[in-house]
Design a protein around this nucleic acid. Structure first.
Length: 520
DNA sequence: AGTGCCTGCCC
DNA sequence: ATTCTGC
DNA sequence: GCAGAATGGGCAGGCACT
């Protein structure tokens, strides 16, 4: 890079916003052989033309996600809102300007969660102003709104207490992929992911199902649902890991190996009208009137309308037994509108309940340097279980959450003193894929909770129990506490981990794929 | 053709 | 996804 | 209560290299 700028004879013209945008688009489009080199050249050209503070911001823009200067989408919306409020300062006279400002921000936030497309928001803003924006720019067919979210609850009693005296429903929380399905007036279908990506082409089978099972009076609608892997032979839900193996590009119905079942739970739009403001009670009724059910193809989320603690507890157990993650609790009439992007529903997963979660005692045998606020600390620890037969520690997972900064600091200090230059001969891991920055003597034992067990291509816990080259790992590992009463050799064993894995699919005859069955 | 590595997207 | 932290 | 920033497993896809 330096060389090329030195040999440059003419200074390139100054950068413009349009030019930068255009180059970014080119970088995005570049593909195929040597595309990396070509992308590099685009970046080089930008940096060569940049002056003053421009390189800094270019780099920050190129470091995906955010500007990394504290400017997030929210700040952008606030800026837009302020601009609009200033522009209309004299047209509104009620209340203080400060309160107008914050009202404008609320309007922008609300509108953006329903129509997350600046190309729609800005023209509407310029056209009708902020105070009409909610009307001039609202939820519309073909454009996904942010999905409504749920906040975690720690117990059934927490639910019962919070919603005392009001109507609510408990639905199975399916372990699949959230989808918002738009049925357009012309009969076409569009599917959007939780992050609003268009994934229409990924689910031709889902599209056929929706078209076939949509009732005649439904001209247009928007479904909120979970797409779940389904074994049509055994009529059982498949693990998410299976569903995820489906192709993502150029998918044709005939080549689909993993079937998908739609579990619908909400209807956001029907025949030209937004239903977002309707109570769930109404939306659910309209949903059920709008579609035929076909087992394993399109079903409604299993639900229980009850306020009884014991009934809900039993229902939660049933959900877990049916290979679901737990329950989602939703009010039916009070405060029961669909609020895009807001976490007004409540989720109750088995991993939140101390009595139900999977807990393992694992040994930190390595660590990785942290980033950002964890610079100068370890950000992550490599954890292992113990195999008493082979007398070796086998890697299971990394863990980087569940401790406060203070506790993290302590762990870092203690473990630093146990650092060793090379892994012990009795450490088993898959080199390359999970090699940590530093290795430790086996000394600590930590209790870790998990939202379930997975089959892993990179960890080797219990790998000789599986036929393939794979081992077991953890989903959503979280540190709970040090087990000062345990020595490393008393850590959870690989055999125990294997048992946990198979136990989680009891009640569901579908076992892991053939090549992953237990060695005999 | 096969492998390894990285990214982007699911959770 | 979960969790913690600062506002 | 919320937003932001740390961090997790794992999949397909795509490029580079052998």
């Amino acid at each position: 890079m330096r060389r090329s700028s030195q040999t440059m004879i003419h200074k390139p013209p100054p950068l413009t916003v349009a030019k930068v945008l255009e180059t970014f688009r080119r970088i995005a489009k570049e593909s195929g052989k040597n595309s990396k080199e070509k992308k590099k050249n685009h970046v080089r050209a930008l940096l060569v033309a940049a002056c003053d503070c421009e390189p800094k911001y270019l780099i920050r823009l190129l470091l995906k996600d955010k500007l990394r200067i504290g400017l997030s989408e929210l700040s952008l919306l606030e800026a837009l809102a302020c601009a609009a409020a200033y522009a209309e300062k004299h047209s509104v006279s009620c209340g203080s300007f400060q309160s107008d400002l914050s009202k404008a921000v609320d309007v922008l936030k609300g509108v953006h969660s329903m129509v997350p497309v600046y190309e729609r928001i800005v023209p509407a803003l310029l056209d009708g102003g902020v105070w009409n924006l909610a009307d001039t720019c609202s939820f519309s067919l073909g454009i996904p709104c942010e999905p409504m979210l749920s906040a975690p609850a720690k117990s059934v009693s927490e639910i019962v207490n919070r919603y005392h005296g009001i109507e609510y429903t408990c639905e199975y929380k399916y372990d699949g992929i959230r989808a918002q399905i738009h049925c357009m007036d012309d009969g076409s279908i569009r599917i959007f992911s939780r992050k609003l990506e268009c994934c229409t082409n990924q689910y031709p089978d889902v599209i056929l199902a929706v078209k076939r099972l949509k009732r005649v009076p439904v001209k247009s609608c928007v479904l909120d649902c979970e797409i779940v892997g389904y074994d049509s032979e055994q009529m059982k839900i498949l693990p998410l890991q299976k569903l995820m193996t489906r192709g993502r590009k150029g998918v044709h119905v005939d080549n689909i190996k993993i079937n998908a079942c739609i579990f619908a739970f909400d209807l956001l739009y029907l025949n030209g009208q937004s239903l977002l403001q309707e109570q769930l009670k109404i939306r659910r009724k309209l949903l059920k009137d709008s579609f035929e059910v076909e087992t394993g193809i399109l079903q409604f989320a299993t639900a229980l309308d009850s306020s009884n603690l014991d009934e809900i507890q039993v229902f939660l157990d049933k959900a877990v037994n049916a290979s679901c993650e737990g329950l989602v609790i939703k009010t039916l009439s009070v405060d029961a509108a669909y609020e895009p992007g807001k976490a007004k529903w409540v989720k109750l997963k088995k991993d939140y309940l101390e009595s139900m979660w999977d807990s393992l005692d694992l040994v930190p045998i390595g660590a990785y340097f942290g980033k950002g606020r964890r610079t100068a600390f370890y950000g992550t620890f490599l954890l292992a279980c113990y195999d008493p037969d082979k007398e070796e520690f086998q890697t299971v997972t990394k863990a980087g959450t569940g401790f406060s900064e203070e506790v993290l600091k302590e762990h870092c200090q203690i473990l630093s003193s146990k650092m060793i230059p090379k892994p012990k001969p009795y450490y088993r891991h898959i080199s390359g894929k999970t090699t940590p920055d530093v290795w430790f003597e086996p000394s600590e034992v930590w209790e870790v909770k998990a939202g379930g067990l997975t089959i892993s291509p990179v960890y080797c816990a219990g790998s000789d129990i599986l036929n393939s080259n794979k081992g077991f790992s953890l989903r959503n590992p979280t540190l709970i506490r040090p087990r000062e009463d345990k020595s490393p050799e008393q850590a959870t064993t690989s055999k125990q981990i294997a048992e946990m894995y198979f136990r989680q699919w009891q009640g569901n005859p579908h076992m892991p794929p053939d090549d992953e069955e237990i060695n005999s």
